[in-house]
C-alpha cells in the first residue's frame, strides 16, 4: 500500500514537470508568433524555451531514475548546456540583426545603440 503511494507521488511529480515544460514551450512559440519585431521575439525565444527544455529534461531524468534506476548524466549535461548557450545565442542573433539594419518596432521609445554606431 505504502509503495503504491510513493510511486503515485513520483508519477505526479514527473507529470507536473513535463506539463510545465510543454506549457512554457507552447507559450514561447505563441510569443514568437505574436510579438512585433526581431528583438521582442528573441525575448520569447531565448527565455521560455530554455525553461521548457529544462523542465522536460528534468522530468525525463526523474523517470529514468524512478523506473529504471539509471542516473542519466547526459540529461544533466543537456540542461546545463541549454542554460549556458541560449542567452549567448540570443545575444549574437540580436547583435547580428541590429548590425545588418533590422529596424526596431514602431512603438519603441529609445535607442541608445544607434548613437554608438554613428560615431
Amino acid at each position: 500500500m505504502n509503495e503504491m503511494w510513493i510511486e503515485a507521488i513520483w508519477d505526479i511529480v514527473i507529470i507536473i514537470f513535463m506539463l510545465s515544460g510543454t506549457f512554457f514551450i507552447v507559450s514561447s512559440s505563441i510569443g514568437i508568433l505574436r510579438f512585433p519585431d526581431v528583438y521582442t521575439r528573441l525575448h520569447a525565444a531565448t527565455k521560455s524555451s530554455t525553461l521548457g527544455v529544462a523542465g522536460i529534461m528534468i522530468s525525463a531524468f526523474l523517470f529514468m531514475y524512478v523506473e529504471h534506476n539509471i542516473v542519466s548524466g547526459k540529461l544533466i549535461l543537456g540542461i546545463i548546456f541549454v542554460l549556458l548557450t541560449a542567452p549567448v545565442s540570443g545575444h549574437m542573433i540580436s547583435r547580428a540583426a541590429y548590425r545588418s539594419g533590422v529596424k526596431l518596432w514602431g512603438n519603441s521609445v529609445k535607442d541608445d545603440y544607434h548613437k554608438q554606431l554613428d560615431k
Binding site: R34, F35, P36, D37, Y39, T40, L104, W105, N107, S108, V109, K110, D111, D112, Y113, H114, Q116
Partner: peptide
C-alpha cells in the same frame, strides 16, 4: 493588447 514600449538603453 500589445501596449508595451520596447527600447534599447545603455
Amino acid at each position: 493588447k500589445l501596449d508595451m514600449q520596447p527600447g534599447i538603453f545603455a
